[in-house]
Design a protein around this nucleic acid. Structure first.
Lengths: 185, 185
DNA sequence: GACACTGTACCGACCGGTCGGTATACTTAA
DNA sequence: TTAAGTATACCGACCGGTCGGTACAGTGTC
């Protein structure tokens, strides 16, 4: 056969869809396989354990986040806070991809929290970038954390912010980064 | 008999401990019962379904958060940002109780996300308080979100911040609230 | 025939939930 | 005083079903 270079992607998509529709604890291999339109054997061929599937989910998520940020950063005028802005705008962009990203974190956290260590590495690098950017570290971290908080709250379905207020908050975040850039504090 | 007013509490403690030790998906009724030192039947007597147990977990968590904040707010000098400060300091106080609080959110999110709606209500009320406080709403929200972000990141084990940096970040948050109070911004 | 898969049947552990039963304390009323 | 009845708290065997994982016999393509 060999026509499926994207078979793994299809399975990963299915896994996210299952989590979205049925909840994190109900993401079993059988239902993911069915959703992806492959047999259980087929799924096991690509991901030999459930842990492998979970790992595949976060790794793809991280890859996708970096790719999206990469694409966005070009549209932002240069400055010390450019990367921070791009990160926030990427994480908070209101689309289904972003929603699925949160779900991936949730399933993995529920099943095998140690797999999230790779996200810790991502955050650590992010922190290093911030420290090197010349912005006030604590204040930059707070803005970055606020973005995480908003994303995570939405993923848990407990964000009380309307889309319009969310938009205003995002604008204010960008403004605060610019204040940091100008040293105004 | 009647000596056990705290039997439910004991079970809730056990449930949190199980999540902490074994992960959210492994929190089964059998192991919670064993951990609590009661039989399965005993557990089912107090919480007739798993959903009931989960509900008990978040409800206790919310109660505890408010009680702790209530106690803390008295120690903070009056001002428009008093409640916000107390909330942040309560959510971020580094102790085991706080750690367990995050875990409760995680299990519930994994098993039955709709039970988190009560947290949405809590946040909504919090937002109303902020709007009424006279502080700049977007900026106050950002600080509050940063506190959520830090707590949630820690709960997921993906916070890259050292305790000392975390402390500095918390201090900066308090400082920013005071800037907001003085209308400097 | 080697490779890249698919489909299905199956395993044992574990899941949430039920059920019949027990022990103890309190209430009632003959 | 005591026997009967009621309510509360708890036990643990058990049920049907689901889980992650295995085994293996195909199947179409190079």
């Amino acid at each position: 056969m060999a026509k499926r270079a994207n078979c793994k992607e299809k399975i990963l998509d299915a896994a996210e869809a299952v989590v979205m529709e049925m909840g994190a604890v109900r993401m079993s291999l059988d239902v993911v396989a069915k959703k992806a339109g492959v047999s259980k054997g087929g799924l096991m061929y690509h991901f030999s354990t459930k842990k492998g599937l979970l790992k595949g989910m976060i790794e793809r998520m991280v890859r996708q986040f970096f790719a999206d940020r990469e694409a966005l950063v070009k549209e932002i005028s240069p400055g010390k806070g450019r990367m921070l802005k791009a990160g926030i705008l990427t994480a908070l962009r209101p689309d289904e991809k972003r929603e699925r990203m949160g779900l991936s974190i949730l399933v993995v956290a529920a099943h095998d929290p140690e797999l999230l260590k790779c996200l810790k590495d991502v955050h650590r690098e992010h922190l290093k970038d911030m420290a090197a950017s010349g912005l006030n570290l604590e204040r930059a971290a707070i803005i970055s954390l606020a973005s995480d908080g908003l994303m995570l709250s939405e993923m848990l379905g407990m964000s009380p912010y309307s889309p319009s207020l969310k938009k205003k908050i995002m604008d204010t975040m960008v403004m605060m980064i610019e204040e940091l850039e100008s040293g105004k504090r």
